[in-house]
Write a protein that binds this DNA or RNA. Structure first.
Lengths: 344, 344
DNA sequence: CTGAAAGCGCTTACAG
DNA sequence: CTGAAAGCGCTTACAG
């Protein structure tokens, strides 16, 4: 009873933010003890712990993270890296990743710094590292021979990558794009579709290469040869896609596989413009589902990855690394195949 | 010469991060002086300042921002708020804003925390405020009767909004959507187009209301009455847009004005599907240009706003506020009108 | 122009 | 189980 009154009194006479010293003073104990009660580290009696917890509750005490940071050499911040050279179509992926990362971070009382990097431009990241503002990094895209990965290793900072790397030490979280694309391709082949074309994006991105490998795997496993002339990588703009689509129509390809929804929606747009019926005249499928193709007629066969969960998982694994827990080097998340009208 | 040798020697014998104490010791001066040389605050001789600067340069000293934060009660972080309920089509806007904010922040040695909020869910923001992790906030969307704005005022934290608010005290940076939409509408009216339909999004967003007002202004200034039956707000999904488009065709509307590119591209998609010619049969224009409509045939008449610059400007103004400089309460940025094939 | 000292609000050996 | 004290790496009155 007495205690509660003190607490209230304290609150009234002081309008600044409460510190650990204030609590110690009000409760007649040392600040060491208060600190222990809060952190749970070291021996402390249940009674005093409760006393402190109660006071904190009543007075709505919040520790100053900055002071904690300085004392512990931790920041309780992580960074999420967004490629500054990503095009508008890739945005939803990174946005969803980031959303997942932020959610997971918040629930563990970490905050998230956004940093834009591109292959050669890593200054922003380096500045933040040198300024000691982060405890770890989520890399949302990996490229071949990744500068960012090198930088992070050099600075010895915990990090995880979304997407594969050639470096086996790197902790990575991903969907198994290779096996997913292999599966989808096999599914089509087994329907009797053999003249399949492939259109993909930037081939310095690991994910593009993985999807491509999966495509090849499928043919190998089905003991077939893909027609290399119908494989187009590094396709980034609309007019190129239009040309490719026209060519593929002339060549009487049976199905166009697109590495992502943006390519797919552009192909679809072109086909509709030319009044080419999908799936009767030509079939169409996408290796990545971003909701861009939702509500489309015909409904498009596609692989579905839960990108937000990818972000959540990556963040959780990173925080485990930061807090010196054992983690798996490689984590693959589940995916789904939506077999819909466009390949029927 | 001697000094440089010491500097080098120092570097060799110590592999931990340099502190201000190390510099003071190495240079035989007090750390107060070192601090002053770095910050430029207080009197200090040019000679000692140079000495310190040189040492810092050679040894690549970087101050510990966390310690600085604690001493100054500053964090050198700002937050950028992203609506967690924004749909895929609004992403490019927020992403570009954020990109601009990050760029401006980095160039002034601030970092950017991403925080997702929605109208009622402001917990994430509150947590960060209470944890003292930010010096200010960029609000990237304002809604009617904004909870976020209230929260920020209550906590007395510097902030700016991108987009208007009803609160005249709030510092805001924006394009003048009202006048922009008014101009574009008048342009059409003066071409003799009078039966104009309007399709817009969420009408709790200030930007939607502003654009709508601009549309009305145009008619008022041209001494005409808009047909209220052809005005659709709160339109968010594809099938609704399809229905509306069909209706408008039946009603022989001359032009459809869309509040943003996503709506516009859906309308266009529907029109193409129905083989309705633009601009011969019906004209089409958009109030916002996100590159989504780039490379479209016909080219679409639209308003063009430089969103990244909006982010840069907002961040700079916020940082000015944080550093107690005078700023304008209201900043309007320029925009462009692209009058293209879709309204010819 | 320069320095000794206190302070920012925590944590953490060390001693009891 | 608890506390006094030093420390994290800066800044900033205050005194000279």
């Amino acid at each position: 009873m007495k205690r509660k009154e003190n607490a209230q009194a304290y609150l009234v006479m002081n309008n600044k933010k409460l510190t650990i010293d204030d609590i110690a003073l009000a409760l007649g104990i040392s600040k060491t003890t208060v600190s222990r009660a809060i952190s749970g580290k070291g021996r402390i009696s249940q009674a005093t712990r409760n006393k402190v917890k109660e006071f904190i509750e009543i007075n709505n005490y919040k520790p100053n993270i900055i002071a904690k940071s300085l004392a512990q050499s931790k920041t309780y911040n992580i960074a999420v890296l967004i490629p500054s050279d990503c095009n508008i179509s890739e945005l939803p992926f990174f946005q969803n990743c980031m959303y997942g990362v932020c959610e997971a971070a918040a629930s563990r009382d970490y905050d998230v710094l956004v940093i834009y990097t591109s292959g050669n431009e890593t200054d922003n990241l380096e500045r933040v590292i040198i300024n000691n503002k982060i405890d770890g990094v989520v890399v949302t895209r990996t490229v071949v021979d990744d500068n960012v990965v090198k930088l992070l290793k050099r600075h010895n900072l915990p990090f995880v990558t979304i997407g594969s790397t050639n470096d086996p030490e790197v902790i990575r979280i991903d969907h198994d794009h290779r096996s997913a694309c292999c599966q989808l391709t096999r599914l089509l082949i087994r329907q009797g579709i053999q003249k399949i074309a492939l259109i993909g994006g930037n081939n310095t991105h690991m994910v593009t290469l993985n999807r491509y490998q999966g495509f090849l795997d499928a043919f190998r496993l089905e003991k077939l040869e893909p027609n290399k002339d119908n494989i187009y990588l590094n396709v980034e703009n609309t007019s190129t896609i239009d040309d490719i689509t026209e060519n593929l129509l002339k060549k009487d390809v049976e199905c166009i596989l697109c590495m992502d929804d943006v390519i797919c929606s552009k192909v679809l747009y072109k086909l509709q413009k030319e009044h080419v019926d999908v799936p009767d005249r030509i079939k169409l499928a996408s290796f990545y589902n971003s909701m861009l193709l939702a509500n489309q007629t015909p409904s498009i066969t596609t692989l579905d990855f839960d990108v937000k969960t990818l972000g959540v998982t990556s963040c959780n694994i990173l925080l485990d690394v930061i807090n010196s827990q054992e983690v798996e080097t490689k984590t693959y998340l589940d995916y789904k195949i939506f077999e819909l009208d466009s390949t029927k």
